[in-house]
Measured scan of single mutants.
Amino acid sequence: KPGPLPPNLDDLKVSELRQQLRIRGLPVSGTKTALMDRLRPFQD
């Protein structure tokens, strides 16, 4: 099960964002902004 995301996704490196997306079965392509947008729904 994926762990909790930090409140500020901007603090994560692109590689860390991609890792979080992979865990959730989401696409890992695109800019850092696109990756963050994709992860936002999973934040508490």
Rank of each mutant, 00 (worst) to 15 (best):
V14C: 03
F42Y: 11
R40T: 11
P2D: 15
V28D: 15
R38K: 06
P4G: 09
R40D: 03
L9T: 02
D44H: 10
T31E: 12
F42W: 11
D11T: 14
L21T: 04
P41I: 12
Q20R: 03
T33S: 11
R24G: 01
L21N: 09
V14P: 08
R22F: 14
P2K: 15
G25D: 08
D44S: 07
L26T: 01
P4I: 13
R24H: 00
Q20W: 01
T31G: 09
S15F: 09
M36N: 03
K1I: 13
S15T: 13
L17R: 03
Q19F: 12
L39E: 04
D37N: 15
L26M: 13
P4V: 14
G25L: 00
G25R: 06
Q20L: 13
P27L: 02
L5C: 12
L17N: 00
S29E: 14
P6R: 08
P6K: 10
S29M: 12
I23N: 05
G25V: 00
V14L: 10
G3P: 08
I23Y: 13
L17I: 03
G25T: 04
G30M: 00
P41T: 07
P27E: 09
K1V: 03
E16S: 05
R22K: 13
M36V: 10
P7Y: 11
G30Q: 02
V28A: 12
I23P: 03
R40M: 08
L21F: 01
L17Q: 13
R38Q: 01
E16H: 00
D10E: 15
L9N: 01
I23G: 09
D44F: 07
T33Y: 12
Q43C: 12
A34V: 13
F42K: 11
L17Y: 00
D44G: 12
I23L: 12
N8H: 06
T33A: 14
L21Q: 04
L26S: 04
Q20H: 13
P27I: 06
S15C: 10
G3M: 14
R18I: 10
Q20D: 03
P41E: 14
G30C: 02
P41C: 10
R18P: 02
P6Y: 06
G25A: 06
V14T: 09
P2Q: 15
P2F: 15
R18D: 00
I23T: 08
L21E: 05
Q43A: 12
L5G: 08
L17G: 02
P2V: 15
R40L: 08
L39H: 03
D11F: 10
G30S: 01
A34E: 13
R24S: 01
Q43E: 11
K32W: 02
D10N: 11
P27K: 11
D37L: 04
I23M: 14
S29Q: 13
L9Q: 08
T31F: 02
L21R: 01
G25E: 08
L9F: 13
L21A: 12
L35R: 01
D44L: 04
P2Y: 14
L9G: 04
G30F: 01
F42P: 12
P27S: 12
L9W: 03
N8C: 07
D11W: 05
L17P: 00
L39S: 03
P7M: 15
S15P: 07
F42V: 09
L17T: 01
P4R: 11
N8T: 10
T33F: 10
D37I: 03
K1M: 01
N8D: 08
P6F: 07
L17V: 03
P7F: 15
P4C: 11
D44P: 06
Q19W: 02
D37E: 15
M36Y: 02
V14R: 00
G25Q: 07
L35Q: 09
L5R: 05
L5N: 08
A34T: 11
I23Q: 09
G25P: 03
K32P: 03
R18Q: 10
Q19M: 09
D37T: 05
G25K: 13
Q19P: 02
K1D: 08
M36S: 03
T33L: 09
L5E: 10
L26Q: 04
T33H: 02
L12M: 14
R38W: 00
G3K: 15
G30T: 00
G25C: 07
Q20K: 07
Q20Y: 06
P7I: 14
I23K: 10
P41F: 08
T33D: 14
F42T: 12
S15L: 02
K32R: 12
Q43I: 11
E16D: 08
L26H: 00
P41R: 08
L5V: 13
V28R: 02
K32M: 02
L21P: 04
A34F: 00
K32C: 02
P7W: 06
D11C: 08
P7N: 15
L21V: 05
D11L: 13
K32D: 04
L35P: 04
L39G: 04
D37C: 06
R38E: 05
L5P: 00
L17C: 00
P27Q: 12
R24K: 06
D11M: 13
R38D: 01
E16L: 01
P4L: 14
T31D: 14
L17E: 05
P4D: 15
G25F: 10
P27G: 06
N8M: 08
Q43P: 03
G30Y: 00
R22H: 03
R38A: 03
A34L: 02
N8E: 09
K1W: 00
T33N: 12
P27T: 06
T33R: 12
P7E: 15
M36T: 08
L12A: 05
L5D: 08
S15G: 11
K1S: 02
D37M: 08
M36I: 11
G25N: 12
D44E: 12
E16K: 01
L39P: 06
Q43Y: 13
P41H: 10
G3R: 13
P27H: 10
L5A: 12
K32Y: 03
Q43V: 12
R22G: 04
P4Y: 15
G25H: 15
